[in-house]
Structures are given as C-alpha cells and as structure tokens.
C-alpha cells in the first residue's frame, strides 16, 4: 500500500517524541528524589564506587596516552614553526577544553553507562523494580537517584584526572623524550591557560556530560522492553545515544563558551 511507509514514519516519529517525553518525566522524578539520595549517602557511595573507582584505571591510562600522543604530534607540527616551546599550551589547552571532558564522557558512557543500563534493565526484566514498588519503595528514588547523583559527581573528577594525567603524559614526551625546555613548557602553559575560561569551562562541560550520560543510561534501562533482546538493545542504544549527545552538546557548549 502507498500509505504504509507514511504510517511507519509517523509511528516512529510519535514513538521518538513519546520516548523523549518519558525521558524528561523520568529526569524530573529523579531530580525530585535527589534530596532523599543525599540523606542516604551510603547508596550514593556504592554507586560512586561502581561509576568512579572502577572507571579510574581506563580513564588514567587513556589520559596518559592521549597526552603522550598530543605531545608527539604537537611537537612535530610546532617544531616546523620553531615554536616547540608552545607544546605545553597546545597539550594542556586541548586537554582541558575539549579532550578531557569529551573523551572522559565517551569512556564513561561505554564503561559505566552501559553497565547502568544493563543493571536497571535486568532489574526491570526480572521484576525487581515492580517488587520494590509493591513494598511501597519508590524505585526511582531508591535505585535511580543515587546512581544519577554518583554519575554527576564522578564525571568532573574523572575528567580532571584525565586532563591532569594527559598533561603529565605530554610533559613526559615533550620534555623527557623530545627535549623541549622544562621551564618554557610550564611557564608558557601557565601564561596562556586561563583558570576561569579554560579550567572552569571544562569542569562545567563535564558536569553537563555527567548529567546527560547518566540520564540516558538510566532512562534506557528503565524504559527497556522486559526481554533479553530488549536489554541488549537498550544497552547498545544507551552507548550510541550518549556518544551522539555528548558530541553534539560539546559543539553547542563550545560555541557558547569560547565563541565570543
């Protein structure tokens, strides 16, 4: 029939908008449950362990290597202009402004976001969430809110860790291996990297990414079809949507913060 594709298009459009609406309703009720999560710090602590501590290794190693690669590549380009002393600026500015928050968010989405989605999705599939509700425990406040809070707290800390280790990695390659002057490396960096404009904006970025990545992961888990295939699809979608949202938001945030 002629109207068949049109029907499908309409159905998927309505489905997408309805999903967006459910996601925002979920976010509203999670935000409503945040105070309660603060009263029970033990629940948040356990999630901080899952999201933060267990992500530390991959973040640290990635940060170190990204910084080292930046040092190598940056030196190659800058040496052609006789400006290899500016390596510190290049490495630190690109890490603090962009790579730190963005790559950390992508890694956390893959490492912790997918785990969150699978966990919540399985809880729903095995009807643990319904069981909680039957015992008059609100699963949003008891399960989702502490995870959300932990994700938002952990993201900026992980991003800072990533950037700091990246700068050290760039320093190791630039100063240690390629012979850039140690003093010039740090002093040029300090002269050009601004605390308010660069470091604070980077932290704001990673806070936003923390909210978005955790929100998407929780929503995909909470909204999953209660089947094995449903959980698997939700986990995939959680990572894909998080990555797209982070990259898209990064452009908007960068345009707002640095485009004067």
């Amino acid at each position: 029939m002629l109207s068949d594709p049109l029907t499908r298009l309409g159905r998927s459009g309505i489905g997408a908008i309805a999903g967006l609406g459910r996601a925002h309703l979920l976010l509203a009720s999670i935000l409503g449950g945040l105070l309660e999560a603060l009263v029970r710090p033990r629940l948040v602590l356990a999630q901080l362990f899952n999201v933060g501590v267990l992500s530390t290794l991959i973040i640290a190693v990635s940060g170190l290597f990204v910084g080292m690669v930046l040092g190598l590549q940056g030196y190659y380009v800058l040496a052609q202009f006789g400006a290899s002393e500016s390596l510190g600026i290049m490495v630190s500015a690109s890490l603090v402004r962009e790579l730190g928050p963005v790559v950390t968010a992508l890694l956390v989405a893959g490492r912790a976001g997918s785990a969150l989605t699978a966990e919540i999705g399985l809880m729903k599939t095995t009807e643990q969430l319904s069981a909680l509700e039957m015992m008059a425990v609100d699963p949003v406040r008891r399960i989702l809110a502490p995870r959300f809070l932990a994700g938002v707290i952990a993201m900026p800390l992980l991003a800072a860790l990533f950037s700091a280790l990246g700068v050290l990695g760039g320093w190791f390659v630039g100063v240690g291996l390629l012979g850039v002057d140690d003093g010039a490396f740090w002093s040029q960096m300090q002269a050009k990297v601004d605390f308010r404009d660069d470091v604070v904006n980077g932290v704001i970025k990673s806070l936003v990414f923390g909210v978005v990545v955790t929100w998407i992961a929780l929503f995909q888990g909470y909204d999953t079809k209660p089947t094995a295939a449903g959980v698997s699809r939700a986990t995939t979608r959680s990572v894909v949507h998080s990555a797209l949202a982070v990259l898209g938001l990064d452009f908007i945030l960068t345009a707002l913060m640095f485009g004067d």
């Binding site: 602590l45 603090v96 660069d198």
Partner: peptide
C-alpha cells in the same frame, strides 16, 4: 569500598587542583 571511593575523590580533587595551580594561571 569506602576507602577506595575516598581515594578516588581525593585523586580527582588533586587533579583539579593541579589543573588550577600548575596548568592554568590561577
């Protein structure tokens, strides 16, 4: 777990402090 979470948060804050004092012009 509490110790590890504490260590994680301390490491994150130290990294932030490093970025503020050593990398930027604060």
């Amino acid at each position: 777990m509490e110790i590890l979470v504490g260590a994680f948060m301390a490491a994150g804050l130290v990294a932030l402090f490093f970025l503020a004092m050593r990398v930027s012009n604060l």
